[in-house]
């Protein structure tokens, strides 16, 4: 299972990708055939396909979740609402729907770090984080997150204090989990817009931490 089909490998890992180009063209042909047949038979509308892609390319992505986290950092009442009824609190910012129908927010603390996985498929909170990254759906992540989460975190360059407990949430049902990362020190009085810039996608899955104000991960 490849984390990247034809893109660069940012961390220089060298996997055997000898078959990649034939697999790629095979996929392109397979998907083109499916699309042609479905459109010709009238089962799907071509402009609906374009509208779906446009939605997930431009409107639904991890900046939505970053705004939710920033609001929770800035507003204790919102944070309490998010912890009690995440679906409603998130909907109040205009996010909800497919693959986010039943949301739960889990909060990182100095004692406990949360990490979200779907070992059985690719369950992921789309309205707040967008489409899952390839690594989230990869065998490497799905197999190891539940047995060796510290090893997974190391792949992301994250080392937690040994005493910090790790709490892994395997999304085996229709509940979707959003990690509320710890607010970096030195951000007192920041606007929600500025705070949202510190919230990375990975920090909301639990494979990362929020950025610290100096630019490096906190």
């Amino acid at each position: 299972m490849h984390a990247s089909e034809d893109g660069p490998h940012p961390h220089g890992h060298d996997h055997g990708h000898d078959h990649e180009h034939s697999a790629l063209s095979g996929n392109a042909l397979r998907v083109r055939a499916l699309e042609s047949i479905l459109v010709e038979k009238g089962y799907v509308a071509p402009d609906a396909l374009d509208a779906i892609i446009e939605t997930y390319e431009t409107r639904i992505g991890p900046r939505n979740g970053a705004r939710v986290v920033a609001r929770a950092w800035a507003d204790p009442a919102f944070r309490e609402w998010l912890r009690r009824d995440a679906t409603a609190a998130i909907a109040s910012l205009g996010y909800g729907g497919r693959q986010g129908e039943h949301m739960v927010a889990v909060e990182n603390t100095p004692e406990e770090h949360n990490l979200v996985v779907c070992t059985l498929c690719s369950c992921y909170p789309w309205p707040v984080l967008g489409l899952p990254p390839a690594w989230y759906k990869s065998a490497a992540y799905r197999s190891r997150a539940v047995i060796d989460p510290r090893g997974v975190l190391a792949d992301f360059g994250v080392t937690l204090p040994e005493a910090r407990r790790i709490r892994v949430w395997d999304s085996t049902a229709e509940i979707r989990y959003l990690v509320l990362p710890m607010r970096p020190a030195g951000t007192e009085g920041w606007s929600e817009e500025a705070l949202a810039e510190l919230v990375t996608r990975d920090s909301m899955i639990g494979t990362g931490l929020a950025r610290d104000p100096a630019g490096a991960p906190a």
């Binding site: 396909l49 690594w135 990975d202």
Partner: peptide, 20 residues
């Protein structure tokens, strides 16, 4: 299965066929 390979959050798709 080897290491998990992170990717930037701005990367939505790796190829056009993935969108389709």
């Amino acid at each position: 299965f080897g290491p998990v390979v992170p990717e930037p959050e701005t990367l939505r798709f790796h190829a056009d066929w993935e969108k389709r």
